[in-house]
Each structure stands twice: as structure tokens, then as C-alpha cells.
Design a protein around this nucleic acid. Sequence first.
DNA 1: ATATAAGCGAGACGGTACGTCCTGTCTTTTG
DNA 2: CAAAAGACAGGACGTACCGTCTCGCTTATAT
Lengths: 199, 199, 199, 199
Amino acid sequence: MSQGRNPDRTRRSERSRQAILEATRALVSEVGYGKVAIETIAARAGVGKQTIYRWWPSKGAVIFDAFLALSEGAEGQGAALPDTGDIEVDLKTVMRATVAEFADPEFEKPIRALNNEIANDPDLAAQYREKLARPLDAVKKERLRSAQRAGQLAAGADLDLVLAVLYAPLFQRWLHRSGPLTAEYADSLVDVTLRAFRP
Amino acid sequence: MSQGRNPDRTRRSERSRQAILEATRALVSEVGYGKVAIETIAARAGVGKQTIYRWWPSKGAVIFDAFLALSEGAEGQGAALPDTGDIEVDLKTVMRATVAEFADPEFEKPIRALNNEIANDPDLAAQYREKLARPLDAVKKERLRSAQRAGQLAAGADLDLVLAVLYAPLFQRWLHRSGPLTAEYADSLVDVTLRAFRP
Amino acid sequence: MSQGRNPDRTRRSERSRQAILEATRALVSEVGYGKVAIETIAARAGVGKQTIYRWWPSKGAVIFDAFLALSEGAEGQGAALPDTGDIEVDLKTVMRATVAEFADPEFEKPIRALNNEIANDPDLAAQYREKLARPLDAVKKERLRSAQRAGQLAAGADLDLVLAVLYAPLFQRWLHRSGPLTAEYADSLVDVTLRAFRP
Amino acid sequence: MSQGRNPDRTRRSERSRQAILEATRALVSEVGYGKVAIETIAARAGVGKQTIYRWWPSKGAVIFDAFLALSEGAEGQGAALPDTGDIEVDLKTVMRATVAEFADPEFEKPIRALNNEIANDPDLAAQYREKLARPLDAVKKERLRSAQRAGQLAAGADLDLVLAVLYAPLFQRWLHRSGPLTAEYADSLVDVTLRAFRP
DNA sequence: ATATAAGCGAGACGGTACGTCCTGTCTTTTG
DNA sequence: CAAAAGACAGGACGTACCGTCTCGCTTATAT
């Protein structure tokens, strides 16, 4: 199906849309989720408030979109996980990177903001799963399937469960600040997972 | 938060304190976390706003206290986990109960509210860990240690990690609504965990 | 405002013009002057907002035109005042009719709206005087001149002043609601005027 | 029974009330009635918007109060009209002063604003009549009664009607800008009135 | 037993932000 | 190719709460 120009007949201003998302990103990073006001976004974006309310149902939706849009390009490029042939090595590489990302104070506020929206709005959660989580998981599962083929992972393993065991503890530790996010922790999660799902 | 050791120290009105916590619980259940206003709590509790501000630093702290107080009794009573001698059976019992609790629509809003506070306020997160999570974890670890002694669990297993692998996937699925909370899911988490940490 | 002498000059849509004026009249009657919005007029008239802005400089001008247009026909027809030969009788007839008109709740809102525009916009006031007040006054003065010729009114009387004494008290009483608008009041104004200007 | 402290003691801030009225007066004079915004009044007065909405039902009421308050002192002092014994001389003095006042461009905007409110809000009109118009009329009627006693005015004259004939034409000329406000016009109104109501 | 001071209910205050409405301009689409 | 449809930046509306600040009143020591 040809991509083409957008045949949809909305008269929506792309310029304003971009300005709003950009201003939102900037403000969330600067003052944190709770203190971002629609009025401030509008002012910063040089946009009338109505233009925001016309296209988004809530502040949460704007913030969500702002960061969703940000990640939409990345996902296409970093399409595949490393595959050295050794699943343990590769997972540790990936998990350590994830740990580092979470630990980066720069991303702290935006990620918490995004998470907040997801946790409190079922609609946004659904969007998140479909547009962000699922594609990212697909990439990871691809690598896991490769490991299954290589006999490094149980053939019958439920890959969603594998991912949950791998990532959920890390996520929870970050969310509740219940412990330090270290490379060691990343490694031990990989170890546990591989032990649980070895052939 | 909940008052100090010496109750004679202050002239704080216990009646007002209870009314505030009770009103807060009711309001969170009725309208959800985001829409609870201090003014509404005060009105519902028949209390001046200042009485709230005098004793709690933020709305989050009130909500947090409201539910912390609720759980404070429970923890003492249900002190120990079942111990039939079979760790798999016992964990499945406990996990299924947890799943049921999360799935209960009645507790949906309060637990999300509480989680919200924890995720966004490091101070409350610390309190949560110390007053709620740690005691509950201690009880579970006790049962795990019993399993270690019985040779059903690796002797050297990091029990915090065991609990993380057991509970975090469930928590994340609930938080992000990424799947149904079923007894089957509970069971598979127990299976995975025991496989990862068998002697 | 109402269109120029040469109708071929512009490509203005007469259909739209009529629809706008009609919608304006309806809305003023329904919700009163203060609450009539250009957007509502446009919607009701099935017209783009721009079509209103293209031809009128302000909301006041539209409202003014709407009622000016309404009176434009009437003035030509009811060209002359009754002339029974007795100025007192005739003036009382006319004044009682005026009182009745003002007292009609149906015309309350439109007349107040029109007056509002006149009182607050010098340009509209000038138009009003020229297009509405002057012609109407001319008709009345004609009758007064007839009375002068009949020796019922001082020959040198300033007819503008006569009309002012006759009508201004009535107008003010209506505008400020400072008293009831009755036939008796109409009569006493005629009596006073004739006393002041008898030959 | 001792009077004591004021029992209907509201907690209303007199300071804020004054600041609001003062700011309103200033703004009406500066930008005219139509462009005064509640938000601007609040900002100028250093007051929260709610403090205005708490005590006044509408913008009109604030503006009305602002100018009512202004006139409240004056009325007590300038209690009596001049009484030289010659009603014609005294009325001309007073009417010329009134004409001068209306002609003063300084008072143009406030008086028009006040009139606007009265013309469009029956409640404010009632207040106006009672608090401003009636007391002022009472003073004038006192002088007219003195003239009746001196045989310069018909004993049975309806004094309200006398005042209407005297003032209404002037008021209407000012409101609709239908002619210049001159001393000559003032004089001729006095002449007409005295002719109509001579003994 | 009495003053005295803290805590209390109440609620006004200066503010910030909300979400809606309308203005007057500009752009796109349609008949 | 004119006009409807309607998006846009801007800004005021009136409401809801924030967190602070008196008010009088009650109550519970600490003289």
C-alpha cells in the first residue's frame, strides 16, 4: 500500500503540533510531570490553548504523545539486538544498557512522567503497549528465538514470560527506588532468567 | 505522618486525625487519586484545612498515610505464610491470593493511588519500603528460608532476588494492564522462580 | 452597514446579508444583546464568519443594521401623523402609542440592544440620527407646524425642543425603569408640553 | 443591651474592597467600560479573582459600586441647592453646572459606563434610583418646594415631572450625542420648565 | 481554679491553572 | 472563484483548589 501524502482531510497545522510536542518535552524535562501546565505548554509553543484541547483529550495524552513521538524513529533504526551467538553475553549487554538508561538522571523525569500516564489511563496504556512496548518486545523476542534455535534457551519457553522475568524486577526497582541500578543487578537478572529457561 | 511515640506530647485531636484518614480513603475510592482535593477531604471530614496542613506536608502524604494505616493491623495478624512443607504449593497459594487481590476492582483505585505516591515521591517510597514492604517481605523470606532448610530452594539464593522474580512481573502486568491477572499466571511465576532457584 | 446605492458594484450575496440580519434579530430577541456572539450569528445564518467580518466592522454595527433595516420600511408608510385639527388630541394619541410600544415586552430586548449601540458608538449614533431619528422627527415636526399655523402652539417655538420635552422624559423613564409607562404619563407629558409652548 | 462589637462582623477585607473599587475606577477611566476585564481589575488591585467573584455577582455590579461609592460622600455635603429667592436664577446655575459636568471629557467614560449598567440590569437600576437618584432628587425638590412657597411655581405641580422635563432632554442629548451641551441649552430647558409650571 | 496557650472549625485571602468561549484572521475545500 | 467551513493565536471568562492567614471557640495543662 503506497504511503503517499496524507489523504486525510484534516486542516490540522503540523507546525503547531510539532511546537506543542517539543514544548511539552522541554517542560517535562525542566520542571517534571506534575508541574507542567497546559497554559505553559501553549505559551511556550506559541499556540492557543484551544489548539491543544482540540487535538488532545487531556494533559496526559499530550505528554504521552510527546515522548511517544520521540521514540518512534529510534525503534525503526535500532531494529535488531546484537547477536554474537552467546545469548548470555548479548542479554547482559542489553540489560546493562537498559540499566544505564534508567539510571541516567536526564531521563528520570520524562520516563517517570510517561509511566505515570500509562499507570493511570487505560487508553494510554493500550496505546503504549501497541506502539512502543510491542515493537520493542518483538525485537527482543527475535533474539530469544535465535537463542532457542541455538539450543541456549528452552524450545517451549513462553517468550513473554522470559521478558517479564528479565525486565520487571528492574522496572520495579527503578519505579519504587528499592535498590541501586547496577550492572551487577542486570547481570544477575540475566543469570536467573537463563537458569529458569535453560533447555 | 502517623504520630510519634508519646501521645501526651501533643494536643492533637485523634478524632480529627481519624476523620481525615477515613474521608481520604472514601474519596480516593470514589473519585480516584487525581481528583481528591484537600478542600474536599477537609469538608468531608468536618475539619478545617489547617488541621490537615498542620500534620501532613502534602496531599500525597495524607493519601499515603490513609492506606498505610489501613494495612498496619493486617500485617501483624497474618504474620506467617502457610507452611505445608511443599514450597511450590504454598507459593502458589500465596501468589493466587495476591493475584486475586490485585484483580479486585474494589482495591483498584486505592492501590493505584498509593503506588502513584510511591513512584513520585522518594520520601514516601522510603517510608513505604520500611513500613510496609520490608515487613511483608520479611514474612515471605521466612517461608523461603524454611524451603532452603528443606532443600527445596538453593541454599545460596538471594532471597530479595527470589521475591523480585516472583512478584515484579505480576506487579508490572497489573500496573500497565499488559495482560490478565489469572491463577495460571500466578502459577507460572512460581514455576519459573523455583526452576531458577532450585538447589 | 446597509449597502451602498449601486448594488452592481459588489458581488455581495444579498441572500447571505438577509440571513445574517434575520439571524441577528432572532438572537437578540432570544438571548439579549450582551450574549449575542458573531459565531452564533454566523452559525444560525448558515454563513461563514468571514462573510460577516467582510461587510461589518463590529458586532454593534451588525445589530444596529439588523434593526435599522427593520424600521426602514415602516417609516415610509406611516409617513404622516394624524391631524384632527386638535393638537392635544393628536399628540396624546401618538404618545399613548409610543408608550404602548415601549411597554411591549416583545420589543424590550431589541430596543435596549439598539440603544446600547447608539450610546456607546458615536458613529452609530450619527447614523441613527440621520437614518432613523431625523426622518421620524420630521414627520412629527410637520404636525407641530400645522399646530402652529392653527394657533395652538407658539409660532416661535423651537420644535426640536418641543419634541425633547415631549419624548425625553418618557425615554429616560423607560431606560432607567424609574416608573411605569402608562397612558396617564403620556397624557401629562402632552399637557406639560402644550402649557410650555402655548402661544 | 450593650451594642458591643459588630455582630454581623464578616471577615471581608476592607483593604481589598477598596483596592478593587479604586482599580475599577482607574481602569474604566483609562480604557472605557467595554474593555475592562475582571482579570485586569484583580491584577491591578493585587487581589485574587475569587475575591471579586465572592462579593460581586457581575462585572457590572463592580463598576456600578465603584462609582456609587465615589458619589456617596458628595451627596451628604452638597446637601442643599442655592436659594437666592429667584428660582430661575438658581435653576440656571444648577443646570449650567450639570451641563458642564456632562461635557467634561474626564467624566465621559465613567458616566457612560455607569449608565450602561443601569440600562441593562434592572437590579442595578433599582439600586441606582434608591442610593443615588432619589437623594439627589430630594435635594432638588426641596428647592422647588421653596419656589412653590414663594409663588414662583404652581402649587400643585408634580415635582417629579418638573425634574423630568428639566433633566431628561439634557440626558438624552448627552446619551445620543444629538446636540451640543451648552449653557444656552441649559437655560432654555429652565425657561421651558418654568413656563410649563408657572402658577 | 484559673489563665493561657495550643489545637480546632471555619473560611477569606492572593494566586495558579483549569477547560470553555469568543474574537478576528487565515487557510482549505467545495459547489 | 466566492463563500462555507473551520483551524488558528490570543485572551477573558467563571470555577476549583492551592497553601497561608486570621478569626473566635473549645479544651487541657501548668500554674
